[in-house]
Design a protein around this nucleic acid. Structure first.
Lengths: 244, 244
DNA sequence: CGGTTCGTTGAAGTAACTCAACGGCTGTGG
DNA sequence: CCACAGCCGTTGAGTTACTTCAACGAACCG
C-alpha cells in the first residue's frame, strides 16, 4: 500500500482539523513508520497486548471493545479516520481493551520510540496528544451516559446521530445525504448493552417512524430533527481538533 | 485551610505514587495557587462551565457525572485522593460533565496559566498528565463494560471491589479492614444505571450472602474472594502512577 | 448448490422498573 | 423537651422493558 506523505494528507485538508506548522508536520511525517492494511473483522490490538503499536486511523472504521471472561462484550467507542489508536494502551503494562477493524482499514503506524522526542521537542503537539486522549474519554463518557440512562430507542437514536455527525465531520457523507454504514445489528447491540433481538425490534420501529433508512450498507437520516429529539442529543461544541 | 507544600505532601509518601525529581516537585509546588475546601454535595465544576479551574484532589471523595436534559443522571466515575480534576474539561469550550464533592473535600488548585510552561519545560510531567487522562479513560471504559454487560448483582460486586482496591491503594483502609464509605444507594444506582429500589434489593441480597457489610458509613469486605468471582473482576496491573 | 452471515418476527420468561408505604435517624425550631 | 420535616434505607405488589429461545428468508460466497 502506498504511503501518503503527511504534508499531502487528504484528511488534513477537508476535515475539521487544526493546521500545523511545517516543522511539526515534518516531525510527524518522519515519525511515520509505515502504512498498514488490516482487513474487516481482524484485531488491530488484542486485549492484554504489551506495548502495542501506535496508529492513526487513515481510512475505514474500527472500534475499541472490552470483554468479560465469559465472553460478554462491550463496544466502548467507534473509531473514524483521524482517530489515534493504541496510545492509551501503551501506557499500561497490558492493553486493557482490544481494537478491531470494522471495515478494511488503512493505518499510519507511528514509531513508538519517537514519542519521547515528541514530548521533548514539540510541546504543542504533546498537548494535542493529551487533547486526543481527553476527547476520546469524552466520547466514552457520552456512551456511558446513554447506556446507563437511555431507553433502547433513545440509545439507537443517539448512536445514529453521533455516528452521522462524526462521519460527516470527516467527509464521509455522500452527495445524496447518504452514508456508508458498516455496523451490523450485533455491533449496535454490543455498543448499547442490548440483546440482538431487542435491538432489531427497536430499530425497525424507528425506521417505521421514518427517522432513518438503512438499505444494505448505507444509512440516510430521513428525519434528523425527530431523531435528535428522541435521543435527547445535544452537541458538544468543538472548535478544531488535532491530527497526528 | 493550611496549604501543604508539595515536597511534604503526605500522599506522595504512602501511595503507589511515582517519585519525582526535586526540580519537578518544585515546579509543581509553585504551580499550586491555593488550597480549596468544598462541602459535601456541592459542585466543584458544573456542566457547561467554560475554562474551569484545575485541581488535584487532596482529601475526600468526589465524582464526575453527566445528565440528560430531563434530569436522568449518570455518574461516570468516582474520584479519590491523587486524582486530577478539571483538566479534560479545560480542553473543550464547555465542560461536558460536572464534578461534585461526595464528602467534604480538600483540593489543591493549580494555576491554569502555567500548564503551558509545564508542557514546554517538563516533558516527563506533561507525559504524566496524558497518563492520568488515559488512566481515567480506562476507569470509564471499565464502568461502561459493567453498566452495559453485567447484571445488577455483578455491577454492585464490581463497584465495591473497584472502590475498595482504589481506596486501599491510597491508604484509606482502616486498621480493622474497614473503610469509610460515603456513597448513598442513590449514588450507586446512578453509577450503575439501576433504579434505587432495585439497587437496594440487590445490595441486601449480597449482604445476606455475606459478601460485605455496610454499617452506617463504613464498609467491610467479608468475602473478597466471592465478591471478585461474582463481579468477574480482574485487576488492571499498574506499576506506579504519577501525582501532580 | 450448500454453508454462512445477517436481518426479521413470534412467543414466553424474567430482570429490572414504578408506585407506594413505613421505620430510623438527624437536625431544627417552637 | 417534643414535634416535625427531610433524608436514607427497606420492603411488598404490580407492571413493563428487555431477554432468551426458536424459526425462517434473503443475500452472499466458495
Amino acid at each position: 500500500m502506498a504511503r501518503v506523505p503527511c504534508p499531502e494528507c487528504p484528511l488534513r485538508r477537508h476535515g475539521p482539523f487544526k493546521p500545523y506548522s511545517e516543522d511539526e508536520i515534518a516531525f510527524i511525517n518522519q515519525m511515520k513508520k509505515r502504512h498498514v492494511l488490516v482487513h474487516a473483522g481482524r484485531e488491530i490490538i488484542s486485549a492484554g497486548d504489551a506495548e502495542p503499536a501506535i496508529y492513526t486511523l487513515f481510512a475505514g472504521w474500527a472500534f475499541r471493545a472490552k470483554a468479560l471472561p465469559d465472553g460478554r462484550r462491550q463496544i466502548l467507542n467507534f473509531l473514524l479516520p483521524g482517530d489515534l489508536i493504541g496510545f492509551q494502551a501503551n501506557m499500561f503494562e497490558a492493553s486493557p481493551h482490544s481494537v478491531e477493524a470494522l471495515t478494511d482499514v488503512e493505518l499510519c503506524q507511528l514509531d513508538r520510540g519517537k514519542v519521547w522526542d515528541l514530548y521533548r521537542n514539540f510541546p504543542e503537539v504533546a498537548f494535542d496528544v493529551t487533547w486526543l486522549t481527553a476527547h476520546e474519554e469524552m466520547l466514552v463518557d457520552e456512551n456511558l451516559l446513554g447506556v446507563g440512562q437511555r431507553t433502547a430507542q433513545e440509545k439507537i437514536a443517539a448512536l445514529i446521530m453521533q455516528l452521522c455527525k462524526r462521519a460527516d465531520s470527516v467527509g464521509l457523507t455522500n452527495s445524496g445525504g447518504t452514508l456508508e454504514f458498516p455496523l451490523t445489528q450485533q455491533h449496535i447491540a454490543d455498543a448499547l448493552g442490548l440483546s440482538l433481538v431487542h435491538t432489531n425490534k427497536s430499530m425497525r420501529k424507528l425506521e417505521k417512524m421514518g427517522l432513518y433508512e438503512i438499505r444494505g450498507r448505507s444509512l440516510k437520516m430521513t428525519n434528523g430533527h425527530a431523531l435528535k429529539n428522541l435521543a435527547h442529543y445535544f452537541d458538544e461544541p468543538i472548535s478544531k481538533r488535532p491530527l497526528l
